[in-house]
Amino acid sequence: MKCKLIYGLAFVCLLVFGCSKIDDGSHVDPITLYEKVNGSWALTNLKMVDEVAKKSAISPSEQNLTTVFNYADFKISFNVNEKNQPTSYEVLGDVPPLFAPTGFWELSTPFQPTGQVPTMIYLYSDAQKTQKTDELRITSVPGSNGEMEFQLNRSSEGVAFVSYVFRLTAINE
């Protein structure tokens, strides 16, 4: 009798719990890097690196530009549309331009890469994104700390001779 009761309870449990449908919630799009890069950023540090001197172990190979040429006023805004797709960007502040101060942008990949390939911010002069003006290599992806770092390289015949490393912090507006 005891055995029949246990089997009966097990059968009832299978009927009640075995056929239930798991509700995983509603579908949402995955978080992209566009959501993390989107917004306004203020410069916390700008470093110029002499790549030739660095490779030749000549000192100094780096110079802090943060406090010169008004770079302390440097701000940049990366804008996206309602679908988190990139639209325009704008550099604010009275600073010498190292790249075009306004234009359009997109990333080389919308998601964090898993290999050694860096994520690039491509800058364009046109909304159709056919006229690339520059590339910024993201060296520190924005996360919960609200910081981002990117690098602008200047090269001749494919060899970098100077780079500018921008360290930024998110502006909460």
Rank of each mutant, 00 (worst) to 15 (best):
P96D: 04
S144M: 08
I58V: 10
P97V: 05
T119L: 03
F74T: 02
L107A: 02
L98F: 06
W41A: 07
V12G: 14
L98Q: 06
K129N: 00
Q63T: 10
N79L: 08
L14F: 13
G18K: 12
P118E: 00
P110E: 09
L65A: 01
G115Y: 00
A42I: 08
E135R: 04
Y34S: 06
Y34N: 14
A42F: 05
Q63F: 08
Y122K: 15
K47L: 14
D94W: 04
D50T: 00
D126G: 06
P96Y: 04
Y124H: 02
Q116N: 13
V95D: 02
I22S: 14
D29P: 12
T109C: 14
Q131I: 09
Y34V: 07
S40Q: 07
T139V: 06
K55H: 11
P101C: 03
E147S: 09
K21Y: 11
F69Q: 08
E62I: 11
A53Q: 07
S56A: 15
D73K: 09
V52Y: 11
E147G: 05
P86N: 03
N45G: 06
F111K: 14
I121W: 00
T114K: 00
T109H: 12
P97I: 04
D29K: 11
D24Q: 15
Q131F: 09
V80E: 06
T130H: 07
E106D: 12
V12Q: 14
E51R: 06
P118L: 06
S108R: 09
F17E: 07
P97N: 09
F11C: 14
N79G: 07
K55I: 08
V80S: 08
A127M: 14
S26I: 14
L46T: 06
Y34T: 01
V52E: 15
A57N: 10
V91H: 01
S59G: 13
C13D: 06
L107Y: 02
V95M: 04
W105M: 07
E90I: 13
D50K: 01
G146S: 04
D29Y: 12
V117A: 10
W105Q: 00
S125F: 03
L15T: 10
L107H: 09
F17M: 13
M48L: 11
Q116M: 13
N81K: 04
L123T: 03
C19T: 12
P97D: 06
V37H: 08
E90K: 12
K36L: 14
L92T: 11
E51T: 03
W105K: 00
G146H: 05
I138A: 02
S140D: 10
V16S: 14
G8C: 07
C13V: 08
N70T: 07
I138G: 03
S40G: 10
S140L: 09
L14G: 15
N79Y: 04
T133S: 14
M48E: 15
W41D: 04
T130G: 13
S40D: 10
E90H: 09
N64I: 05
G8M: 04
T66L: 00
F111L: 12
L9M: 08
Q128F: 08
Y122A: 11
T66Y: 00
T114N: 04
F104G: 00
S140N: 10
Y89T: 00
N38R: 06
T114A: 02
F74M: 03
Y122T: 03
D94L: 10
Q112S: 15
